[in-house]
């Protein structure tokens, strides 16, 4: 890592952490979503320090541009009122969550120690559009196709939640409404 990369890494890491703390500490859902946006953009900067240029661009386009918008829509759907009942957890739960955080940190730390000596510099053109495409569309075709299935699942799930009507159901509703209007018109006004 060059000095500039090193600086950028710590700069982006600090912003990402600040955004993450804001996301979980904010009582207003909309403010949490905006903090998440800060984290996501800082992560794009971290990808740049890892020579993953395409991923950094996709991160900004898809996550900052679309996924955060989706989160904001969900907040608007369920109402953006702040969480009122934020009763502090019991001591046992706090202890358990601290133990959980310690275990996750230890797991990551040990696995990083294991691979740190085997890290090599990425090959030329590693994170560019052509580099990613060459890897993804030759060696990762099955995960690529599974992405299409996952996206389909997202649409089907959203439709199931929103309970859209089929074309025949729509026709049935229209027929019923017309019939009701006709019967209302047939009855004399009192």
């Amino acid at each position: 890592m060059t000095d500039a990369k090193f600086l950028l890494f710590f700069f982006c890491a600090a912003i990402a952490l600040a955004g993450a703390i804001g996301t979980i500490a904010s009582k207003l859902p909309l403010r949490a979503a905006m903090s998440l946006l800060v984290t996501i953009i800082a992560l794009a900067g971290l990808y740049l320090t890892l020579d993953a240029q395409l991923l950094a661009a996709i991160q900004v386009l898809v996550y900052a541009g679309a996924v955060v918008v989706l989160f904001v829509f969900v907040i608007m759907l369920i109402g953006p009122a702040p969480e009122t009942s934020s009763a502090p957890g019991s001591v046992v739960w706090r202890m358990l969550s601290l133990v959980g955080i310690a275990m996750i940190t230890a797991t990551f730390a040990f696995s990083f120690v294991d691979v740190a000596s085997t890290w090599v510099a990425p090959p030329a053109g590693f994170g560019t559009v052509r580099g990613v495409a060459g890897e993804m569309y030759t060696k990762a075709l099955v995960p690529f196709e599974i992405v299409a299935m996952t996206l389909t699942t997202a649409i089907v799930g959203a439709l199931a939640i929103a309970r859209s009507k089929t074309a025949s159901e729509l026709a049935e509703m229209k027929r019923r409404r017309v019939a009701e209007d006709a019967s209302a018109a047939a009855q004399p006004a009192e």
């Binding site: 898809v62 759907l77 996206l151 649409i155 959203a158 929103a162």
Partner: peptide, 14 residues
């Protein structure tokens, strides 16, 4: 309806 539009946008954006 806004949510349906938003999720369609995300899916076809990806």
């Amino acid at each position: 309806k806004f949510y349906l539009t938003a999720i369609s946008f995300v899916v076809f954006d990806i």
